[in-house]
Amino acid sequence: MSVGEAVTAAEKLRRSRAGSRRLHKAAPTIFLAPAILLLMVFLLYPLLSSFRLSLLDWNGLGDGARFIGLQNWVRLAHDTVFWNSAWNNILLAFFSVVVQLPIAVVLAVVLDEASKGSRLLKILYFLPLLMSSVALGVLFKNVYDPNFGPINGILGAMGLYSWTQDWLGDPNFALGSVIAVVCWQNIPFYMVLFLAALSSFPREITEAARLDGATGRTIFWRLKLPHLQGTFRTAVLLAVIGSMRYFDLIYVMTGGGPENASEVMATYMYRTVFNSFELGYGSTVASAMFLIIMVIAAVSLRISKRFETEV
């Protein structure tokens, strides 16, 4: 092979390697492009469109949209119903974390330790999550019915007539009644989440701890609970975000009433757009809802991360 041919072959090899490196670097972009495109179409564009509509005074029909700048945002800042609904969302998120997650952890540990009948128990515990939220809302509207519902019926049969209430019609009890149903429905989800995390816990460690005389309580607090730190952090984040955008069950059970006692941001946004036909202001509520959820999710993530490192 002559010198010229050797140089040409070396140049071709260099170009081939350079092309392979470029293709290797471009591979992540190529594979991520469909997902990025879908996110832009179904997430980024609606989000930007919502912020754009928040600057308009428009009922959503025809060409009567009028640009009003930040007037909708000023109105939102003084809207007591919106801030009350945001507070209700915060209460829902708080009780979702302090009620759902501890019960879910206990059920997961019990099912993880159980041998006989554990499969049947898993199915029974998981049934609430399999039910449609709309069907569940209709069911519990009848359960809470002040005249024919089983709750007041049982209280009346026990002679506790003073305890009977209009659970969904009384502003003092409506939100709590709805939160109880929300927690009951979503506990199975977190139970399965913790159960999956416990399945990766080495059985040898549990057996060794028992041989050393450790009780079940000690094994749970000293070994299994630290093992669940990462899962618990994820569960907190999911519970908070899910609670901040909850809609269907509350809308079916109370519609946000009575007297806005069980109103949450999603139901208020829905009523503003589809009942009052204020698309501009409803978009403002939706945009504010997004910002609030982002802030609360970031704070929850930071707090749970700090708790994880401390524990």
Rank of each mutant, 00 (worst) to 15 (best):
M294P: 05
A6P: 08
A108I: 05
N72H: 06
V311I: 09
A196T: 15
I90T: 12
S300R: 05
Y268C: 07
M265K: 04
T164K: 05
G255Q: 11
E278R: 09
T272F: 00
Q71T: 15
V285P: 11
S200E: 11
N72Q: 12
D79Q: 12
G156L: 10
S96L: 00
V252T: 07
A6K: 15
I293D: 14
V273P: 10
M1V: 14
P46H: 00
G255W: 03
V106N: 06
V110E: 11
K224T: 06
N275I: 09
I179Y: 02
E11V: 13
M158T: 08
R271D: 11
G69H: 04
V264C: 10
H78C: 02
A197E: 11
E308V: 09
G64P: 10
L279R: 01
L160F: 14
L120K: 01
L237A: 04
I241V: 15
A298H: 11
A114G: 05
L195S: 02
Y246G: 03
K122E: 03
V138Q: 12
M158Y: 07
A261R: 14
V264T: 14
A266H: 01
M253H: 04
M158R: 08
E11C: 04
V74A: 07
F201T: 09
F189D: 11
S2D: 15
G19L: 08
L38I: 12
T80Y: 01
M289A: 13
F42L: 12
H78D: 13
L249H: 05
F173T: 15
A174Q: 08
I103M: 02
S16E: 14
A209F: 02
A86T: 12
A286H: 09
M1S: 10
E204C: 04
W221N: 10
T164F: 01
S287C: 09
E113F: 03
V105N: 02
L225Q: 09
L47Q: 04
Q100V: 01
N172A: 03
I36M: 07
F307G: 06
R21V: 11
N84W: 04
R245Y: 01
R203E: 12
R15P: 06
A235L: 07
Y125G: 06
A6M: 12
G4P: 08
L53H: 09
L70D: 09
L111D: 00
L301W: 04
W184C: 00
A26F: 01
R52P: 03
F95K: 11
L53S: 05
P171H: 00
I179N: 07
G137V: 09
L225V: 07
L195R: 06
F51A: 02
A174Y: 00
G62L: 05
S16T: 10
W221T: 13
M294S: 11
V252A: 05
V181S: 01
T284Y: 01
D170W: 02
N147G: 13
N186V: 01
L198N: 07
F232D: 08
T234A: 01
